[in-house]
Structure formats: C-alpha cells, structure tokens
C-alpha cells in the first residue's frame, strides 16, 4: 500500500471535512483507498467497504478509518450496513460510490452473459444501491436532508472502448443515474448534491500490475500514458483531491454535473 503514505505533497492546511461522516465503497485499494486517506486527512470520519481484509487492515492502520465487509451487489446487506453507520455515527454526509469492476468484459461479439451481468451488477446496480441508501440516510440527518454523493464514472463514459463493452455502458449509464438523482433531490427540496467524477487512466496498483504482467511493460506503459495528451496517467491522490473537493461545502452549488479529470484525454477525442 505504497500510496497510503503520500500526505507530503498535498497542500492541506485546513480540514474542510471536520465533523462529516463519509462512506466509500470499494475502499480497500486504488482510488477508493486513496480517497479514504484523503477524506480522513481533511478531518472526516470514514467508513469504507470491500472484501479484501488484509488490504483493508492496512488502510485502517494508515488512516484510522473503519472497515465494514460489504459487497455493493448484496441487496439484503445494505439495510444492515446503513443501520450500523447511523447507529455508530448518527449521520451521513458524504458517499463515494466507487466500487467497480471490468472482470469478464469483452467486445460486443465476445462478452458472455455472466461477465455482462457481473459488471452491470457492480458498476450500475451497485452504484444505484449506493446512491439510494446514501440519499435515504442523508435525508434523515439531524439538521435536515443535506449531503454530497459522488459517483465514480470514467472518461470512458464519453469514450467507449471496443473491448470493454459492459464497462463503457455502465460508466455512461451512471451519468443518467447521477442526473436523475440530483433532479429528484431538488424536487424534494433536499440539500443533497449528486455529482460524477470522470477520471482518465489512473495509475493504481491494478494498472501497475497489468503493465508489469504484459508481454512488453514499456510499450504497455507508453500506451496508457499516451491516452492523455499530458503524456502521463493520473495518480490516485489527484482523483482523491477532486472527490474531497466535491465532498466539501466548497461545492454547495454543484449538483447533477460531470467532473472530468483526464489530462485532456477527452477534450479532443483523438481516438485510442
């Protein structure tokens, strides 16, 4: 968990999230773990979910966050998760619907129904359940319905990949989910904001591993880096900084919007 010790190059002199309670799904690695760390550094009390106990222990040790084993697709376990959060913390201010997978994906010709159902289950239905339960919990906050929900989409929402059909579809679909939820929140006169982040390629342990295991790591790395005109991938903490900003009161007037952080990858849609 090398990325858990990177506080030094963040310029956090102020704890924007003091007093806030946050839920991060899929928080044991990658962008999720980096976000748990950043939200904690800004003063939030963070609960994160996932399944990898060893990785979760490392995140807990580094951040003081609470891990609850939970699968976003486990419909019947959601009520218990939220009940426990509300019981222990009394409120929910921030939810980051981050858990995602590309396991079993393929092209439109090759993908099997199992792979499709898994990816749509986690990346779309799992996100729907996260937003739904977060909004229900936030609607019951002591001072009234207030909070910030952030969904991790991807630049692939606007740049579909031929060999990842389910992933591309799920990341576009959650944008409509975000907008519908934001409009609903407004209709109910809630102060609950719902926004999406659309990162470019982020150099997570998963991507680093993919690069290493590819036949030609140098060429694979160059291909990933070349997706951005900036010539590099994002680091986990860069995305975490965006999520923290959206989680904070700085963005009280932002709702239903897409926040792209991709080193200009989609500014020109230059093709892959």
């Amino acid at each position: 968990m090398g990325h858990v010790q990177r506080h030094s190059h963040w310029e956090i002199a102020v704890k924007r999230l003091e007093g806030k309670v946050a839920l991060v799904t899929g928080g044991t690695s990658g962008i999720g773990a980096g976000t748990v760390e950043r939200l904690c550094a800004e003063g939030a009390r963070v609960i994160f979910t996932g399944s990898n106990q060893a990785a979760a222990d490392a995140v807990c040790a580094a951040t003081g966050a609470l891990f609850i084993r939970h699968d976003v697709t486990d419909v019947s376990a959601w009520d218990g998760l939220m009940a426990r959060i509300l019981e222990e913390y009394g409120r929910l201010d921030i939810a980051f619907a981050n858990a995602g997978t590309e396991n079993g994906d393929g092209s439109i010709e090759s993908i099997g129904i199992e792979g499709w159902n898994t990816i749509i289950g986690v990346n779309l239905t799992g996100v729907m359940l996260t937003v739904q339960h977060a909004m229900r919990a936030m609607a019951r906050n002591p001072e009234g319905p207030v909070g910030s929900i952030i969904v991790n989409s991807s630049m692939n929402a606007h740049r579909a990949m031929g060999n990842f059909v389910a992933y591309s579809v799920s990341k576009t679909a959650v944008l409509a989910l975000v907008k519908s939820s934001a409009v609903h929140s407004g209709n109910r006169k809630y102060k609950i904001r719902v926004n999406a982040v659309l990162p470019g390629v982020v150099e997570t342990a998963m991507i680093a591993n993919l690069i290493e295991k590819s036949g030609d790591p140098a060429a694979t790395r160059a291909a990933y880096e070349g997706l951005s005109p900036m010539g590099r991938m994002a680091s986990v903490d860069e995305v975490a900084g965006l999520v923290a900003w959206l989680a904070s009161d700085e963005t009280r007037f932002c709702s239903g919007s897409e926040f792209t952080m991709d080193g200009a990858s989609t500014a020109g849609m230059n093709g892959v």
Partner: peptide, 29 residues
Amino acid sequence: ASAVFFLASSDSSYMTGSELVVDGGWTAQ
C-alpha cells in the same frame, strides 16, 4: 470562486481541457 480556487490549486493538477459546471443542477434536468 471556490471552483476557480480548485482549478488554480495543485489539487487539480491532472485537470485540463475540462468544463467545471457550477449551476445548481440547471443543465442536469
């Protein structure tokens, strides 16, 4: 100003060519 501050700060170091919409949901509906 808080959005402009974010864009000015190092926290947005990977953000370029993006559109930051701060509209209270106007364009989502």
